[in-house]
Amino acid sequence: MTPWEAVAVFAAGVAAGGINSVVGSGSLITFPTLLAFGYPPIVANVSNNVGLVPGGVTGVLGYREELGGQRGLLVRLGIASVIGSVAGGLLLLNLPESAFKIIVPVLIGLSLVLVLVQPYLGKWLAGRRRDRHPHGGPLLWLGVLGAGVYGGYFGAAQGIVLIGLLGIFLDESLQKINAAKVVLALLVNSTAAVLFVFVAPLDWWAVAMVALGSMVGGYLGARLGRRLPPALLRGVIVVVGIVAIVNLLMD
């Protein structure tokens, strides 16, 4: 990795950490950046996953006020996130790289659709909040399990999936739901990262640059990200995601 590439990956990490705290699709920034610098898709994916974990930690610190009173919910759903993440990580490591190259463009495309429909989803969720099970019931647990599998395998926009699920099944403010999302996404990434550190091909320079950037971005995103124009943020994510799809299809 050249010095200029290191700066670019660090900057992508800052953006990804902030986006993950606010929306939940930061991998659509860092993953394409690593692909653009010539990293193989599997190496880029696992290095990106491990590197974004510190950003999740600082994001949680930034949302500590909104996390008050959510321990029981997070313990229950956190178990689903961990189980799903292990399953998704094992799928990534055992399926051939050719399968990853086919599956991931589809997953990125679906993620971009979720990014675009998020404002409409939020309005729809606001109209559906009534009396809810305090912990969401078994359907929410299974949904979070599925999101964990997705996050362990690839993970871009898993935060948006989690916001949708939590908003449907829980009667909580959007800020508390977003805080819970940050914790659950951190559990997914951390669990997969532990697996990847021992058995997956990592590039530690890429991990370090993404980690340093995501730590800065994760905290700033949690504290200041609510002031960013949502339309601009979604536009950047969509453009970068399209670039990632093109890179994968042309590889």
Results as ranks from 00 to 15, higher is better:
Pro96Lys: 01
Leu232Thr: 12
Trp205Met: 14
Ile242Lys: 06
Ala192Ser: 14
Pro201Ile: 12
Leu212Asn: 03
Ala157Asp: 09
Gly69Trp: 07
Gly122Tyr: 14
Ala126Ser: 15
Ala179His: 00
Leu34His: 08
Asp131Asn: 12
Leu52Gly: 10
Ala206Cys: 07
Trp141Lys: 09
Ile102Tyr: 14
Gly155Asp: 01
Ile103His: 05
Leu220Asn: 00
Gly225Asp: 05
Val240Ile: 15
Phe196Trp: 05
Leu114Trp: 09
Gly56Tyr: 00
Asp171His: 14
Leu125Thr: 07
Phe154Trp: 02
Ala206Thr: 01
Pro54Trp: 05
Ala200Val: 09
Glu97Thr: 12
Gly18Trp: 03
Leu93Trp: 05
Lys176Trp: 07
Leu67Pro: 02
His133Met: 05
Leu74Asn: 04
Ala180Arg: 02
Ile160Lys: 00
Leu93Arg: 06
Ile160Cys: 06
Ala11Arg: 06
Glu97Met: 04
Ser111Glu: 12
Val60Asn: 00
Pro105Met: 11
Gly151Ala: 13
Tyr39Arg: 11
Leu165Met: 13
Pro96Val: 06
Ile168Lys: 11
Thr191Glu: 04
Gly38Tyr: 13
Gly122Ser: 14
Ala206Asp: 01
Ile163Asn: 04
Leu212Ala: 13
Thr58Lys: 04
Ala192Trp: 04
Val194His: 10
Ile79Lys: 03
Gly213Glu: 02
Leu195Thr: 08
Met1Asp: 07
Ala192Arg: 01
Leu95Cys: 07
Trp4Asn: 12
Gly221Lys: 00
Ile177Ala: 04
Ser25Ile: 10
Val197Trp: 11
Glu97Lys: 09
His135Gln: 15
Leu186Glu: 03
Val9Tyr: 03
Ala16Ile: 00
Asn20Lys: 11
Val22Leu: 13
Ile103Phe: 10
Phe10Gly: 03
Ala15His: 04
Asn45Ser: 13
Ala11Gln: 06
Leu61Ser: 04
Ala157Met: 08
Arg132Gln: 13
Ile29Thr: 07
Leu92Asp: 00
Leu74Trp: 01
Pro105Thr: 11
Ala211Arg: 04
Val238Gly: 05
Ile245Tyr: 11
Leu249Arg: 15
Ala99Cys: 08
Pro229Val: 01
Gly218Phe: 02
Gly159Cys: 06
Lys176Ile: 07
Gly122Gln: 15
Ala12Asp: 01
Gly122Leu: 14
Asn49Leu: 14
Gly159Ser: 03
Tyr153Ser: 00
Val53Lys: 00
Leu232Ile: 12
Ala156Asn: 08
Val243His: 10
Ala15Leu: 14
Ser25Asn: 15
Arg64Asp: 03
Ala36Lys: 10
Gly155Cys: 01
Gly55Lys: 01
Gly159Ile: 02
Val82His: 03
Ile29Arg: 02
Pro54Ile: 05
Gly152Lys: 02
Leu187Asn: 02
Ile237Ala: 09
Ala87Arg: 03
Gly159Glu: 01
Val43Phe: 09
Val197Lys: 05
Ile108Thr: 13
Trp205Val: 13
Pro41His: 14
